[in-house]
Nucleic acid binder design. Sequence first.
DNA 1: GAAACTTCCCTTTTT
DNA 2: GGGAAGTTTC
Length: 780
Amino acid sequence: MEENYLEKLNEPQRLAVEATEGPVMVIAGAGSGKTRVLTYRIAHLLHKGVDAFNILSLTFTNKAAREMKERIGNVVGDANAKSLWMGTFHSVFARILRVEAPLLGYPSDFTIYDQQDAVSVMTKIINEMHLDKDIYKPKQVLGRISQFKNNLITVRAYHNNQALIEADNEAMKPRMGDIYRAYVDRCFKSGAMDFDDLLLRTNEILTRFPEVLAKYQERFKYIMVDEYQDTNHSQYLIVKALASRYENLCVVGDDAQSIYAFRGANIRNILSFKQDYPDAKLYPLEQNYRSTQMIVEAANHIIKHNQDQLEKNVWTANEDGEKIAVYRGLSDADEARYIATQIWERQISEHLQPKDFAILYRTNAQSRALEEALRKRGISYRVFGGTSFYQRKEIKDMVGYMRLLINQNDEEALLRTVNYPARGIGQTTITKLLVAADQYNISLFNLIENIAMYAPNIGINAGTSNKLNDFALMIKRFQVMLKTHNVYEVTMEMAKTTQLLNALKEDSTPEGVSRLENVQELLNSIQGYVEEQQQLDEGDSSLGGFLENIALATDADNEDEDDNKVNLMTVHLAKGLEFPVVFIAGLEENLFPSMMSVNTRAELEEERRLFYVALTRAEKVAYFTYSVSRFRWGKIIDCEPSRFLEEVDDRFLDWKNLNINVRASNNSGLSADLFGDEPSPQQYQQREKAVARQNPNQRKVIESQPKANFKPVNKTSASANGNSNAQGLQVGQVVVHDRFGRGVVKDLQGEPSDMKAIIYFDNAGEKKLLLNFAKLKIVQ
DNA sequence: GAAACTTCCCTTTTT
DNA sequence: GGGAAGTTTC
C-alpha cells in the first residue's frame, strides 16, 4: 500500500476522496484530475477496510476501466484490485445478465447483437411487412426504438401511449408500434439482446424481482460512476435502484463535456443530482493541471456561448503557452499536408515524439486525407475507430459460426453461415425456411435439424434437405466437441472443416491475403484469450466469455504494442485523453458543427461542447484548421469556415495565412499555395537525419492496415507493467507466478514474439504459459 | 443457385 | 470514392 497518497491531492480532491459515505457529486472541469480522484477514492475505501467485492465502478469505456484498475493496483497492490468490479455499464450488466437473464426467459448464453445485426433484423422485418424502406429506413427506425428502450418504454407501454403513437403517425410511420413488437419478438426468439437491451433487461429484472435487487444492493455497497453527464435514463435508473439502500454513491462528471445526447444521454441527470439526493455533498474541481493558460481561457471563452451550463471557473497555474494557430487550407489535401508538415517540424524543434500528437476530427471519413499526407511524410500514425476489426466480413463470418455453437437459435448467425462458404443453399430455400419457421413457431435451427420431417410440407427437395441436414449435424458435432476441447481447438477445427480457411487461401488478391491474415489474427487472439483466462482466478475461458468480450469491445480499446504513433480519432473517441499537441481539423460549417445538428439550439450546444472537449485535450499547443473545399461523396464541394471559429476571440488566435485571400468560389492562386511550402528533397533528407539523430530507436513506419489496430481482446494486466518479462527467461530459471506460485522453467517454445514456457510449479504441476500474458517474476 | 455486373446509399458522433 | 444490396446472366 502506497503511503501518504492523500498528500498527492489538492484540497477539493482530497475532500471528495475522503467523503466515502453518502451521496457525493464531483463536478470536474476538464483536466482537473477527475480520474485521480476516482482512483484514490477507491484506494481509500480499500485502505479503510472495505472489501473490494463491495465496490462497483462504472466507467465510460473499457479502456478507462483498465487504466483505472492498473492505477489502483499501483496504489494498493494487484491482488486487492483484482476483485473490483469495474467496467462499462454494458459490460458489467451483461455479466450480471449472464446469471439473471433466465428469469426473463432468455438463455444465459444469449447473443449480443451489434448494430449490423440489428439493422439486418430490421431490414428483414420491414421487407416481410411489405413496408416502404424509404419511409421506414431501418437505421432510423432502430434509432427510434433505441429511444424507446433507453426511456424504458416497452412494447406494451408504447401501445398505451397515445402521444407517442400520434407522433409516429404524424411522422408518416403508423406501423412503428408493430415494427417495434416484431423486432423485440424476433430478438427474443433468437436469444439475443441488442446494446439497449442490456440496460433495459437489467432494469426489468431489478424492478420485477426484489430479491435480485436486494442481492446486488447488498453486494455493491459503494458505487462510483464516471462521466455521469453521459448516462441515459436507463442507466440512471439502474444506478438509482442499486444505490437506494446504502446511498454510497459517487458520481463524477462535467456538464460542459456532455456529448452523447444523440444516443440518449440526459444532461439533466447531472443537473438534478442535488434534487435526487438532497444530502449530497458537492465538490467542484476547478484547477486545471493539463493545459496552458491560453488553452484553458480559450476553452472557457468558447463554452460561455452555451446557455445551458453550470457556473464554473476553470483556471490553471500553468505557463501562458502559445496562441492557437489557425490555418485555412485550399483543399482537404492541403489542410492535411499542413498538419503533417507541422508535426514534422515540431518533432525536431520541440523534441516531440509521434505519440505526442493527436489529430481530431468530427467524422471518421476525414481520416483518409490525413492518412495520406502522413504517409507521404513517412510519419507513423494510428487511426482509432472507423470500421473495427470485428465488423469485417471475414471476421463476422467466423464469429457467426462461433455464435451458433453457443446459441443455436441466433438467427443472424445462422443466416450468415448457412451458405458461406457456398453449399448450395440459396435465397429461395432461405425464404421457404423463414416462412416455415414462423408458421410452426420454431427457430430456424430447430427447423433445419429436423428438416427431413418438414421438407415435404414446405416444398424443399431431397437434395437441399440433405444439405441442410449436413449443416445442422456439423454444428451439433462442434457443440459436442466444445465439451471436451478448448475454444481454440474447436474454432481451428471448424475453420478447417467448413473450408473457410481454404476458401480464403485461394484468393490471392491483396484484399484476399489481408482477409486471411485477419482470420489468422482472430485465431491467434482466441488462443491468447484461452491461455490468459486460464491463468486468472475468476477467468472465463469459455466461448461465451470470448464472444461477450468482442461484442462489447470497441476500437478505442485495442492496444498496439508500438504506440509511438500520431493519433487520429474522432473528437468523441478523444474524450478523457490528453496530448501535448492537438490539431482540430475540418472546422467548417456543415462538418463541425455537423449539418445534422444546426437546427436547434440544443443540438448546436452539444456540438459546441464537442468543440470544447476537443480543445481541452491539448496540453501545450492547439491548432485549428479548415479548408475552403473538400472531397465529399466523391465530389469536390465548397466549404465555409465554422461559426465556432468566429466565436473565438482573436486574442487567442494566430491566423497563419490570412494574407492569401482566396474565396471558396475563386480558385485563382491555388497552385502556388497548394505546393508552396513543400520541402525540397534535400531539406527532406536533412530533416530525416535530424529526427534519426534525436531519436535513434524510432524507425519510421508506414502504417496503413487497420489490422494493426487489433490486439487480443481483454488484455488486462499483461506485460505492460514491467514485472513480467518474456525476454531473458531461460530454461532452468526459477520463477514465481501470481497464482501458481514457485516453479521451474522446463522448456521454451515458439517465436520470441509469441513465446510459450513449460513451467513445472511446485504446487500446481506442469503448465504451459504464454509469456505475453503470464505474469512471472524471475527469482533466480 | 452462383458469379458477374450495376445501382444505390452513404457520413455525425458509439456502447 | 467505396461497400452493400439488387439485378442480370450463365
